[in-house]
Design a protein around this nucleic acid. Sequence first.
DNA 1: CGAAATATTGAAGTTATTCAACTGGAGTGG
DNA 2: CCACTCCAGTTGAATAACTTCAATATTTCG
Lengths: 228, 228
Amino acid sequence: MEAVCATCSLASLCLCSSLPERERRRLSDNVRLAWPMRAGEHVFRAQDAFDALFAVRSGWLKTYARRVDGDERVLGFHLPGDVLGLEAIDAGQHDVSVVALTDCRVCRIPYDAVTRSASQSPEMQQHLVRLLSRRLSERDCWLICDNLSADSRVAGFLADLVARRHRRGLDAEAFRLPMSRADIGSYLNLAHETVSRSLTRLEKNELVEVRRRKIRVLDPPGLREIRT
Amino acid sequence: MEAVCATCSLASLCLCSSLPERERRRLSDNVRLAWPMRAGEHVFRAQDAFDALFAVRSGWLKTYARRVDGDERVLGFHLPGDVLGLEAIDAGQHDVSVVALTDCRVCRIPYDAVTRSASQSPEMQQHLVRLLSRRLSERDCWLICDNLSADSRVAGFLADLVARRHRRGLDAEAFRLPMSRADIGSYLNLAHETVSRSLTRLEKNELVEVRRRKIRVLDPPGLREIRT
DNA sequence: CGAAATATTGAAGTTATTCAACTGGAGTGG
DNA sequence: CCACTCCAGTTGAATAACTTCAATATTTCG
């Protein structure tokens, strides 16, 4: 299978946008559209050497780390267009793990190709810096840390997913949550029982319909507005 | 007052390290060692246009944002060597505010000088990318989010300050906390009363001595090990 | 010195967690 | 096809932890 950044619908989110055509082709030649991954397979693990960035083409993934006590802490969920591995550039070694939650396709972009491209193309250089800067400003932990009730954290989490799916042209009204309640809880810093109860309450308030992992969002603005 | 990156003891943390001498001088010519700032003055505010990065030379500062409801949320505290403003590069506009907690000195580094330097020096380019990457990997929110008790959050907060002061060659055993209990609470997502109580408990356990804002750390490893 | 801000401490109230029981699907194998 | 099992999810009750409200103490600064 061939990587065709030139025609990739996600290019604007990825690394190759804003590259002059010649550079884009050059980078593209170095990119391998990874073989489809099965749910449960890892893109990389903490401690692995860093030598490439990854771009999600399809599917869902999650980033997690191990706590001191050994158990898992979920740090984020990824959709098509997300770039993975940026935080390992400096250390040259991954400090988190990324695992596929569903079957996925992921592009591998060797980091030396990025460096080479950046040294010859100011546009590429800028793009990389801006990608990093944007990620810094995103701070998804506001969701978690902002002294919010369980309900507003869960609502905010769903609103975030809806917004991201919408931006990517995916169905944002009804979709399947690929992660367990425990994953959501780990991400939001709530017990999985609390996540469950919150979803029930959101459903009672007619903001969403939840059946197991199937979700239908009835009132997106309502979700964003919960502040309790 | 003149900026003298060449002789700055913080260069390795800042932007000008790993620059060839010629480039360093060039950048240095564009850097202004800001006039000393008084406690309470802002380096920049949310909504301000972004056109420069800032490097802390001395003193303490804090970053904060406004919540939806209008009140302040503290996002971090800064020591000499920290670079401020990186998260605004992409948007071209600041989304957080930085204010001096004590009298400070802060260098202003015009961003177009950085861009120019980067386009001519692969080292500078790399350095900027790595600075951004490192900041991404730091994730100070682990402290806050990691499902920890109030005591371990406060202990972790102190341990983090100790480590950072140590790395910078500042007195890490005894120093003055420049921020209020309310600031610490906002940062750690705790009520200020809870911060106060936690400090009292840490003192009872002989990990620290706290008198108001004066702190003496008696058992740094002990601080790091609290997990309850 | 006196006022305002900051910090500490106590008691009551809330909220999420924990422990436990139970339910419902998905997958397995007879 | 139907049990059987396992895991994820839901729900209830008791508990623990933090917050809130209130009173008091200590600094700081005009």
